[in-house]
Design a binder for these strands. Structure first.
Lengths: 224, 224
DNA sequence: GCGATGTTTCGGCATGGACCGAAGCATCGC
DNA sequence: GCGATGCTTCGGTCCATGCCGAAACATCGC
């Protein structure tokens, strides 16, 4: 259930029961405990109750757990779920930023262009990167509150991708990139999933501005 | 047990059984499972078997879990352990770097002097900071392999301190600072604990070089 | 109002896992 | 060699937890 909430959206108790593959009473019990201990927050809306992660700290914890879990020796258990897996690996949200092939690709492209400098431990958005992102519409000003004191540089957090085993952009910068991509219609959420779809407009932007290729998935994109 | 291993040292099965408050067979069973799943690594030495965390990813996961756990609502359960608590809050190792009042104080001092710039998401060691740390003996060269590509700046990772609720220095920089402080005799490990003691020499360095005050604890320091 | 839908509470079952004592190995000191 | 120490395996007990079905409660659409 927590994994399902990792995309930052709020899901109803029933949806969470379904994704977890348990009956409603079971899910309800777990959700009550997780809310009581502060892992998740709930907001009632009509006859639905929407649950979401209580904050970024919980998301970071889950990411850290998944990092360890995904690098564990290939035990007898397989978590692969088949058909949905492909879309998830290609592009998905990771709490508040983008992951998967798309997320890693964007991070690589920004790095190659000198817009972002990323190490295992931290990252910097360069001045050129500021200008580039502002030019394509990101609200860079909102990020500046978090910049390092003297150098004036905007720092960002790397996040290890469990499917690609590579680092992508998280933190405020990653969140803004994801938010803007959604608002600008470059990507679109697949209903009931963490996966996102790259639209035609997005494909053009990611190709022309970022230099990314092959970001459009075959299935379903024609409808967009 | 994992918490006990979080200071980066390797402990024997018996020691881990003791800190966990369980019988040897119980500890042995848990340790076997944790080793099988890759959480910990073991090295046999004579009739002892030394267990340690298998890598930084596990430490990051535990830190992330502790961050969430420490900010949980003050439930009925209390984890406070009393006498040892004070020394732990004052200065301790956190996998491979320093935490507690000392760790946070060093991070604050370096920030105030403009040697380090730290945000919630990431940090930078400035050029002045490089020079400063090199002057007091740190192996800054070893860090340079991890610097950001173009700006030449060394990045570091912030780590939320569960006792101070503030950020301190982790990552390669934090590890080097901790290692050097131990080698130079500025701090000393308290046997069988994550807590460290600030020596007279360390107190002088932390006061004169970093501008920290009150880093010597009353108890026990006279013996040094 | 009334049935339909979403959610929680209650009761009870069953599995799993946490634990320990006793015994079996391995290694150390001598 | 032999006893002492450290660790693991084995066997068995016991409690906690996960789970579900039935029923209660709340809200919606009408």
């Amino acid at each position: 259930m927590l994994h399902a909430l990792l995309d930052g959206r709020a899901l109803t108790a029933g949806e969470l029961a379904r994704v977890a593959g348990v009956a409603a009473p079971t899910a309800s019990g777990h959700l009550a405990k997780m809310e009581e201990t502060g892992l998740i927050a709930v907001v009632a809306q009509g006859r639905h109750r929407y649950f979401r992660l209580s904050g970024p700290a919980v998301a970071r914890m889950l990411e850290a757990i998944m990092e360890v879990a995904s690098s564990a020796p290939p035990g007898p258990r397989k978590l692969s779920v088949g058909p949905k897996e492909k879309a998830l690996r290609h592009a998905r949200t990771c709490y508040d930023h983008l992951a998967g092939t798309l997320g890693v690709g964007l991070a690589d492209a920004l790095t190659a262009a000198g817009h972002v400098e990323l190490t295992e431990e931290a990252g910097i958005l360069t001045e050129g990167g500021c200008a580039f992102l502002a030019a394509i519409g990101l609200n860079v000003e909102a990020l500046k509150a978090r910049r390092a004191a003297r150098s004036g540089r905007i720092l960002c957090r790397p996040c290890l991708d469990w499917s690609e085993r590579r680092f992508h952009l998280a933190g405020a910068l990653g969140a803004e990139l994801c938010t803007h991509s959604l608002q600008a219609g470059w990507i679109r959420r697949l209903p009931g999933s963490r996966a996102v779809l790259v639209t035609r407009a997005g494909e053009r932007v990611f190709r022309e501005e970022f230099g990314l290729r092959g970001m459009v998935e075959e299935t379903g994109v024609a409808a967009l």
